[in-house]
Design a protein around this nucleic acid. Structure first.
Lengths: 222, 222
DNA sequence: GCAATCTGGTACAATTAATATACCAGAAAT
DNA sequence: ATTTCTGGTATATTAATTGTACCAGATTGC
């Protein structure tokens, strides 16, 4: 049985942080001394993981300057690889699966969401509003909002299930079907869902999300 | 970031081996010197893991006799046992996630299951009956049955989501159908689900599965 | 311009986890 | 009665991780 070296945990964590947009391509990472504090490892261990990420081409370490996330690192990440059967999947199935998972999740979220998750939800809404003229950005925070809702259910198994299909969501036409003018509508839905979770209004939250996803389902049927 | 102690991996591995029926409740485990060779760890590390399993009530260590797998009375899944990426997962969460995904899936399966999937389901039931005295085989086909049910929903996104949590199902199996004599009960339940899907009795299928998972959920609450 | 501060690169002792080895004592098999 | 099994224990060794310290180039503030 192999011992799990901390260095590879750092690699995994960093990939996760990059893929979720916490750290963004072309940008500089926090200094090593800050990073190792944030990740809760010693600097030596962090550097071990960073060296791996460097050799994988995910980051570039520049002496006396900083550590930079490479531009197209997303495509090299394991999670960035589309499932092979992607093209055989219908939008209808994607939205239906979302309904099945997200609706119970929002019900749980209304019961269990903590202040931290509520704060994150609010932040995502703010970011959505700020990037309402930048569709890729808008959709990114749309996505993060929904992931946070599932996360707020405090059921990590459900989170795992949802994460596994988030690639479908990302690359599907669902988001490109949010045409101009649809952003305002999406904003209203998200704000209502946020309010329902914050005020623990379970029935309202379920109803709003169901309507939201049904709207998407309608726009998909064509 | 917590260091992953090998002892915890031993605990996980042992639970996995018990849940897959390699080792069965009320029976004696191989001697420590054999076990640590099989698991690929030193005896000290193995004993550390076994001590945890003992304090959790999973096994009972009897000096100068052996290590015996206990029947579970404590349904709690202790922290830090499950795979490193998803810590603090409770059995409650696992069963809840199963409910959320499998119940809509069986409803869809009753609507959409084709002859091919029905044939596969029947085959899994036959294999389960044939291997009723071979627990690892039995649980294997038990698992395949559930995956086929979700697959019969004809929603590939849902299948992906379910596959991503199937690793956790075996942990829930530890506490459910692993005991001797439970196999017959599981058989009856699977046969009823199969009949409901075959005869497209949506409400019946949902009810049977919901009752079963609610039973498990109830026994878990303690 | 200069000094303080930042950056990654490096070295080394202390701590901790895991291994390998040996031996003990009771129990069971031969 | 002796060999061989069992878990319990002790210890030296190896390796991973931490913590601390310092280096040298680059940047920032005054």
């Amino acid at each position: 049985m192999d011992k799990e070296l901390l260095g590879i945990k750092v690699v995994r964590k960093m990939i996760s942080l990059i893929s979720t947009g916490v750290y963004r391509p072309e940008r500089k990472l926090p200094a090593e001394r800050k990073l190792c504090e944030q990740l809760g490892v010693s600097r030596g261990t962090l550097r071990q993981g960073l060296a791996d990420l460097d050799s994988m081409g995910v980051v570039k370490i520049v002496p006396r300057s900083g550590i930079y996330i490479k531009k197209y690192s997303d495509k090299k990440l394991p999670k960035g690889i589309l499932p092979p059967n992607f093209k055989n999947i219908s939008l209808h199935d994607i939205v239906n699966a979302r309904k099945i998972i997200e609706i119970p999740a929002v019900a749980l979220a209304c019961e269990k969401a903590g202040k931290d998750k509520i704060a994150i939800l609010k932040n995502h809404i703010i970011k959505m509003e700020q990037s309402i003229d930048d569709l890729p950005e808008f959709l990114k925070y749309d996505m993060l909002f929904h992931q946070t809702v599932v996360s707020a259910s405090e059921n990590k198994v459900l989170v795992t299930a949802f994460e596994s299909i988030s690639e479908y969501l990302k690359y599907s036409q669902v988001y490109t079907s949010v045409h101009e003018g649809e952003e305002e509508k999406a904003m209203k839905y998200h704000k209502k869902i946020y309010a329902a979770i914050k005020n623990k209004q379970k029935k309202a939250g379920v109803k709003i999300l169901a309507n939201h996803l049904n709207d998407i389902l309608e726009s998909v049927k064509s």
